[in-house]
Design a protein around this nucleic acid. Structure first.
Lengths: 152, 152
DNA sequence: CGGTTTCGGTTGTATAGTACAACGGTTTGT
DNA sequence: ACAAACCGTTGTACTATACAACCGAAACCG
């Protein structure tokens, strides 16, 4: 394979990933109008980590703490998360999903999953596995790294 | 390969693409603070297609035409694109980059390309080609379809 | 033709998401 | 005990976005 081909592949990856990112918001809005993409991702992260601080979220998604603060206020208002002061450190608000939050998250994830299944219907299991592996490998190179709350 | 493996691959694809989309804005802001992601993608598409209409852009990026209209007004104000009425159809504004627009786009693309090269440095040419092909295939299933300006 | 419909685009209005800066309360380190 | 670092909120401003109402041009149809 020529050097030019390598260049071309990088160009294509850049173009396609950018196009995807650009459309993600609109796609998410169609998939689940009731839970915007941002709220969805934050809620999903909170759920995955079974309780975390606002600062964790800000670091993970490269957001300002004020943004996270407002997003959490909004999620709380919707009754999807609870914030409770950490008994060990009164500065920290430990956030975790409510029952309703878990329910909404599950339903949203189901509709997203169905949409992905639909789009990937014609793919062979082998192609899916390879594509997934490539994405994991790609994101691993970009993601801030492992620390992510040194769990005191 | 089991059915469960297929499921797992779809889950992974969904999770990784979502994470990517969620960080794309911040990443783009770091890569080229001077040209926001949205402007960048619109300008790149205008350049690739060597002149296109606002409606083309709206369809390609799933944006409302009003959004595109304002984005183009902003790009025009920055002197990066020109809009000229199509002589064959007075409703259409044909948009294309100015000399300055091409220059800025080239510089932005260079910095983005360098960042991508860096991240993909360890990949073999074969893996890059396969990953690129998967992304193209994936996006093709989502994109509104081939017409994309049926060129009258 | 002539009227209606469709189409491309702009503008008014409203909302979400975001950043930055200033601040208040809490903990930590010296 | 005082200063520094830290967590989070709030004030402010801006960008991106959608939806709806509209204008003018073209296409369609009877």
């Amino acid at each position: 394979m020529s050097e030019g081909a390598r260049e071309a592949a990088v160009e294509t990856i850049q173009r396609e990933l950018t196009a995807f990112a650009r459309r993600a918001r609109a796609t998410a809005a169609r998939l689940h109008p009731e839970l915007p993409l941002v709220s969805y991702t934050l809620l999903a992260h909170i759920h995955d980590r079974a309780g975390c601080s606002a600062t964790d979220l800000a670091a993970h998604y490269l957001l300002d703490k004020s943004t996270v603060s407002r997003q959490l206020a909004s999620l709380e208002k919707l009754g999807l998360v609870e914030r409770r002061p950490d008994p060990d450190d009164h500065r920290v608000q430990v956030v975790h999903p409510t029952e309703e939050g878990r329910r909404v998250l599950a339903s949203t994830q189901a509709s997203r999953h169905a949409a992905y299944e639909e789009r990937l219907r014609d793919w062979s299991a082998e192609d899916l596995a390879r594509f997934a592996a490539y994405l994991v490998r790609y994101n691993a190179a970009v993601t801030p790294g492992p620390p992510e709350t040194p769990r005191r």
